[in-house]
């Protein structure tokens, strides 16, 4: 299992569109995918789960990945966060 720390960069935070981007990206991989914020942890392949994080700009999240393709998945997900979901930063 590996853990990566990421920051929400876009101004609007993780609203519905970024949430579905995260879920879509995470679901491409076989690895189990969880996101942790303030000790609260949800399944990263569930859109309702990701949205309940209600993560605002600047929030730090931990991505937890566990499975055969965890490295690729972590890199891909990190890139999604790095781009700020293609939204204004």
């Amino acid at each position: 299992m590996l853990i990566r720390e990421v920051t929400v960069r876009n101004r609007a935070g993780i609203h519905t569109r970024p949430a579905s981007m995260i879920v879509r990206e995470g679901s491409r991989f076989k690895s189990e995918f969880f996101i942790r914020k303030d000790g609260y942890e949800i399944n990263g392949k569930s859109i309702i789960g990701v949205m309940t994080l209600a993560a605002e700009q600047g929030a730090t999240l931990e991505l937890l990945l566990d499975g055969p393709d965890e490295n690729e998945a972590a890199d891909a997900l990190e890139a999604v966060f790095e781009r700020g979901f293609g939204e204004p930063i």
Binding site: M1, E32, F34, R36, G39, Y40, E41, I42, L64, D66
Partner: peptide, 8 residues
């Protein structure tokens, strides 16, 4: 399957 850690 992994279970998340408890919080309180």
């Amino acid at each position: 399957m992994r279970t998340p850690e408890p919080f309180q």
